[in-house]
Amino acid sequence: MLQQIALPALRVTAVTLFLTGLVYPLACVPIAQLLFPQRASGSLIFDDRGEVIGSALIGQRFASPHYFQGRPSAAGTDGYDASASSGSNFGPTSQRLQRRVQSDLTRLQADNPDQHQAIPVELLTASASGLDPHLSPHATLWQVPRVAKARGLSEDRVAALIAELQEGRDLGIFGEPRVNVLLLNVALDRRFGRLVAVGP
């Protein structure tokens, strides 16, 4: 009785493992690479020398005042470690959450002395992935005075670039309006010249 079941069970395991665990995913690779080569390989961005700057989908850590900064990140020890995606997983009543917000808030206020509006909550909350590439337009505009001053530009020109790069809701309905921080910073460098990083 058991043998009547065990033998097919064993054979079905082997066959389905081969079909769904190897044939299907391996077949998907060339199909995807052929149809969407750039996207299937990580939407990479290159600099003028052909070196990889990063992926358009993966957020990066920015410390220099002339770059827009993304959200706090709990990925890896310094944040934005793409090989260790993670949220903070701080609960709503966590004392550690309160302390982290306090310290980020002090830093943001010190870095942005010309900005007196309340800080948009995205700039003080860690994203789910630790690799969130986006900010809301509101949180980007909040940083304009600092970036404009560091680059010696008028705030209007920087704000105009944000308006240009802002992405709307998908199909006008889905998700939230957003700005890709890495693409914005790349565009800043391309349009207004690359500044040498002044260190953290």
């Binding site: 959200r71 949220g87 903070s88 997983n89 701080f90 709503p92 009543t93 966590s94 959450l97 309160q98 917000v101 306090q102 808030l105 509006q117 309340a118 800080i119 948009p120 909550v121 995205e122 003080l124 909350t125 860690a126 994203s127 789910a128 992935s129 969130d132 986006h134 900010l135 809301s136 509101h138 998700g175 939230e176 957003r178």
Partner: peptide, 21 residues
Amino acid sequence: ALAGFPIDHAAGNMEGKEVRF
């Protein structure tokens, strides 16, 4: 827990959430 800070909470409870969603 973040009520006392000068924060604009319009986006809601964004800890652990992604901007695009």
